[in-house]
């Protein structure tokens, strides 16, 4: 599956983007659970981190994910008006636009940072969103901004392995 044949006949490894996904506990994480229960197949490139609310996504999480080698970051939250915590997703929305502008200035393409509203019943739209993001990232290629471990250590950031 991860191999494709080029026109020259040589076999090359297809680029498999790594996507870190932050899903809220009440809507998008459940959409992913429903996709499982419904056996809806989608691209295996995402790695989900569960948070109670998309409002918990600290912009630094996103930067951290890119710095540690993610090719894309996906935030999934409840639809506007549906937030389990009333308004966390609105805060996420504002933050998202600001952060995307910042990332753009840093040369990180818009396609790499995505926000999706996916309710607990939207397993199929989840599949579509993930597959679409993977395709777009595949077209873009790797981000290649992974920061060496020492760089984190230098600025006093804790290294992930305790």
């Amino acid at each position: 599956m991860s191999e494709t044949t080029t026109t020259t006949g040589a076999t090359t490894e297809r680029f498999e983007p790594k996507i870190v996904a932050f899903f809220c506990n009440w809507c998008t994480y459940l959409a992913a659970d429903l996709a499982g229960v419904s056996r809806i197949k989608y691209s295996p490139n995402i790695r989900t981190i569960r948070l109670m609310c998309s409002g918990r996504v600290d912009p630094q999480f996103v930067l951290d994910a890119f710095a540690k080698g993610a090719d894309g970051v996906l935030i999934g939250g409840c639809h506007p008006g549906d937030c389990h915590y009333e308004s966390g997703n609105y805060k996420t929305l504002r933050r998202f636009h600001l952060l995307r502008a910042t990332l753009r200035a840093l040369g990180i393409e818009d396609e790499r940072f995505r926000l999706e509203w996916l309710s607990a019943s939207e397993a199929d739209p989840l599949k579509v969103a993930v597959n679409d993001m993977v395709e777009r990232l595949r077209a873009l290629g790797p981000l290649n901004v992974q920061v060496p471990e020492e760089a984190f250590a230098e600025v006093g950031e804790e290294v992930a392995v305790p």
Binding site: F61, G69, A160
Partner: peptide
């Protein structure tokens, strides 16, 4: 969360 981000990547 940072540990998880580092972990999945």
């Amino acid at each position: 969360i940072y540990a998880e981000i580092g972990g999945v990547l």
